[in-house]
Design a protein around this nucleic acid. Sequence first.
DNA 1: CGTTATCTTGACTGAAATCAATCCCGGTGG
DNA 2: CCACCGGGATTGATTTCAGTCAAGATAACG
Lengths: 248, 248
Amino acid sequence: MAPSPAGLTKCERCPLRRQQAFRGFSRDELDFVQDFKQGELEVAAGTTIYAEGSESAHLYTVLAGWAFRYKLLEDGRRQILNYALPGDLLGLQTAVLGSLEHSAEALSDLKLCVFERKRVLDLFAQFPSLAFDVTWLASREERLLDESLISIGRRTAVERIANLLLALIERGRMAGLENGNSLRVPLTQYHIADSLGLSLVHTNRTLRRLAKDGLVSWRPSEVDVLEPGELGRLAGRQTDFRMPRPFI
Amino acid sequence: MAPSPAGLTKCERCPLRRQQAFRGFSRDELDFVQDFKQGELEVAAGTTIYAEGSESAHLYTVLAGWAFRYKLLEDGRRQILNYALPGDLLGLQTAVLGSLEHSAEALSDLKLCVFERKRVLDLFAQFPSLAFDVTWLASREERLLDESLISIGRRTAVERIANLLLALIERGRMAGLENGNSLRVPLTQYHIADSLGLSLVHTNRTLRRLAKDGLVSWRPSEVDVLEPGELGRLAGRQTDFRMPRPFI
DNA sequence: CGTTATCTTGACTGAAATCAATCCCGGTGG
DNA sequence: CCACCGGGATTGATTTCAGTCAAGATAACG
């Protein structure tokens, strides 16, 4: 999977920059990142971006679309670890730890910025501010995983689903994927089940119940949150902070 | 909880440095870290190191002992997110994201190095190598969380317990807490249950079964892994790589 | 129009939770 | 020296949430 020869999108005109959610760059930072960027990669929904155990030479920033990280057990049981939206970094582990212990797949058609793993060291050496951003992103991922852990470990099926959907629409909103009050998410029930440690059947039943109560709506490969408030009550959540975030 | 006035342990003579598992420091790095270190904190088992929602001014490296990170739900359900052993960093999120969304507690009597949150920026600006190490630690934490997630989400009770115990003794070994072939871990069954998303009762029964088969042994607040091999088979695990790791 | 991926439902099963006692043992105070 | 206490560990009985099995229904797609 070779990246295309040149960056098609100039960082200067990166569509992500236009959004308030992302922090601004200095001229120098912009130049560096532009040079750091090896190219762009467009893949279709369902494509594997990298697989567990690989020592990919690249890391990626999602430019457009959705992706997800996951792990498999020998017998095929799958656990989805997290989702990646525009602005999110994928494959940092390979640059830092040397290898990857999870796989990543395109959830929707996807456009990725490709960076060379080896140059991450230059980034740290030359741009402490960007290095800090990378660490910011890693810490944030950690926080999202913490949140998933308590969900899967301690919440009931309804609570888990409510939490997942709310977290996703919030992240979608932050990433500028606004779509009226309720955001469409390109998920199948398989994805939801595998994200939450539930079986497909039980996920379906739970979702069905939520739909009957008018909290979410449903079409193949698309969820639609109708009543964020009520759903939030079910989820038992309060957090909804926002602040400008970095990305590279 | 104020740190003691001065670092009691000179970084130069830091006991962790003596172990092969940790990477060496240059003279400059050593001086910087020595200065970065604000003091030392010794707390008794059971003490809360920081609580969810706080914006602690400090971050910590575990010098000796065990700690754990956890989250609580409104009604008291608890999920333990991860454990921290000597060399592990605690509270990075506060320095990077501005606040903490989890709590941390001393599992055993604990000795911590205390660093000032604000100076993390200096660290990034002055020592790219150390900044990289911080990111290394964050990525590693992420990987551990990934591993927990698939455990809780997709593994059975026996598999979860086997995996947790093996992961802990391996980490203990890496951190130099070797203790013959089988390492003692200061865990109660409560901790195990809350780490794995299981009830106390079920955890006890499962553990009991493992003990009956001679795979683990048990005393209040102490587990003892007797048959790592057999347990590993149950856990369905293979990973057991080792490489020098950083810490600050 | 078959084909294939999703989504649904019903019936049954089962792993793990919950409820409820006990037990064990180290520490403490009388 | 011993009764009392409290944190942990155990165990039995019962319940339930979620998993598994099986079969259709739907709907996008080539």
